[in-house]
Amino acid sequence: MVDEITDFEVLEIALRELCIEKGIFTAEEHRLMTEFAEQIGPTPAARLVAKAWLDPAFKELALAEPMTASKEVGVDWLHPTGWGTPSDFTAFQILADTPTVHNVIVCALCSCYPRPILGNSPEWYRTPNYRRRLVRWPRQVLAEFGLYLPDDVTVHVQDSNQKHRFMVMPLQPEGTEGWTEDQLVEIITRDCLIGVALPKAGVTTNMIVDTRPAIHPGNAG
């Protein structure tokens, strides 16, 4: 398919073949996990948030026992292998926004991400540009996504790691009172669940949101 493969790809092939040879998992189990990971999207997480907006008891469950709440929207973190994987079967926490605190997630070290419920991470989430700058200049980076927060709102940057995964539960936007769960799901985009956007009536998962180029704060003047 390509003329060259990277050192990381060579390592993945060697490790995968060794694991199959040693009986840690079978080639069929590997295929099932790969297909499962590729078809996941952020819809389950969006439905979890929508249910929490409509049901205070479910919101309490989601914040206290997120793995249990995940099962109620069709996500079992042990599926499909029955035992999970080192990169996915971890401590999972849902971060609830408040009127004075806005949460945003990053993995400053690499690109840890709650794939079972959010799907594969976007390319920009994995870039050094996002990972290194968000922890230093969060408002600057959020502005590049078009998100400008009031000065009285504290930005809480949550750094994922090998053992912990996070997603954001944003506040329900004004103008959506009385909406059904399905209607709410449509406006809870992947970026809202990462924390680089806020849900808005009329802005759905199908809308492309413009971003502006990154500018180093030292060169902003």
Rank of each mutant, 00 (worst) to 15 (best):
V141R: 05
T211H: 14
Q93C: 08
A52P: 01
M67W: 13
A91R: 12
N161H: 09
G84C: 00
E4Q: 13
V75S: 05
D88C: 08
C192T: 00
D55I: 06
V203I: 11
C107Q: 09
E60N: 09
I208E: 07
L147D: 01
E28G: 05
C107V: 07
I194F: 01
C19R: 15
Y125E: 04
V196D: 02
T154W: 08
N103E: 02
D55S: 09
T90Q: 14
L61M: 10
W53G: 06
H30C: 10
T81N: 07
V106C: 10
C112K: 08
H79A: 14
M67T: 12
F25R: 05
T85S: 13
E17W: 04
E28C: 08
C192Q: 01
I187V: 05
R126M: 12
V2I: 11
L184V: 01
L15G: 12
M167W: 09
A50G: 08
R136P: 05
D152G: 06
S111Y: 11
E144S: 15
C192H: 00
E72F: 10
H216Q: 05
C110I: 11
L142W: 01
M1A: 12
V141M: 13
T6G: 09
T98N: 09
M67Q: 13
D3K: 13
A197Q: 09
E29F: 02
R115I: 14
S70N: 06
K71V: 10
A96I: 02
V203M: 01
K59E: 15
G175H: 00
T26N: 04
I105L: 10
R132S: 11
